[in-house]
Design a protein around this nucleic acid. Sequence first.
DNA 1: TTGGTATATACCTGTTGCAGAATTTAGAAT
DNA 2: ATTCTAAATTCTGCAACAGGTATATACCAA
Lengths: 121, 121
Amino acid sequence: MELVQIYECFCDETRLRIINLIAQGPLCVCHVQELLGEPQVRISKHLAYLKTRGLVRAERYQNWMIYALPAKRTAELEANLRCLQDCVQTHAVFKRDLQRLAKMRPKMEWLAELSTTPHAK
Amino acid sequence: MELVQIYECFCDETRLRIINLIAQGPLCVCHVQELLGEPQVRISKHLAYLKTRGLVRAERYQNWMIYALPAKRTAELEANLRCLQDCVQTHAVFKRDLQRLAKMRPKMEWLAELSTTPHAK
DNA sequence: TTGGTATATACCTGTTGCAGAATTTAGAAT
DNA sequence: ATTCTAAATTCTGCAACAGGTATATACCAA
C-alpha cells in the first residue's frame, strides 16, 4: 500500500468517517450504514474504493460482509491511522460516530469472535 | 483548513514532493521545478491547487513567487506534516529531493531573509 | 421454490482532477 | 518601447470520482 493511496482513501469525508469506525474493530456494512446515516449504496461504494486500495479487507459471514483493517499494516498506514485518530478528536461528527458505535457494541458481540483482528477499545 | 482538504493536498505524488520540499522552508517555483525535474506548468498548477486549499501561501518577490507553508497552521496540519515527514524517510524519491535541496541551499541565501517563516534546517 | 435480508453492481449524470500545448501576465533590465 | 525571465492562465481532452436509481447477486429461512 503506497503512501499516496492512503491519502486517496483519506480525502473524502464519508470515507474518513468509515475508517474512523472500522479502526475500532470490524464492522459490517449495515452497521456502518446505520451509524453514518448514509444510503447503503454510498457506503458500499466507498468500502469498495477502500478495498481496492488495500485499506480494508472484507470477509463474508452468512448474509453479512465484515469489513476490517488488514491484519498486516505498513508502518505508514499505522502512522497515518494514529494521526487521523488524533485529529478527529476535536471533530463533532467523528466523535458522535464513535459514541454511537460504543452504544451499538453490546448488540454486536457475535462479531467480535469472527475477526482475527484485535479490537481497539 | 479542513482535514479533508489536507488529504486532498496529500493525495498526489507530485504534490507530496512539493510539500516535502516546502516544509523545509520557502521556495520559489523555479527551484521546485528544477528540484523535481517536472515541467513548469505542472508545478505551477499543483501549487495553485495547494494554495486554494490553504496549504501554502505565496508572496511575490520581484520576478519570483515564493511559496511557503502558512505562518499559522492548525494542529491537524502540523500533525499531518510531521506524519508525512516520518513516512517519507524511507522513500528514495523524497530523500533524493531533500538531498538536492540541501545542495542547492547555498545558492539560495537571499531567500532565507525574505520569509517570516522559520526554516526547518 | 418463494421470499426476505444484506450487499454489490450497472448505468447515468455532473464534477473534479490531471496532463500538455500555447498564450498571457508581471516585473526587471536594457 | 523592447526584450528577457518567471509564473500563471486558458484551452482541450480524458480519466476518475461521487452521487443517485434501479437491478442483480448471495445467502438464509420457511
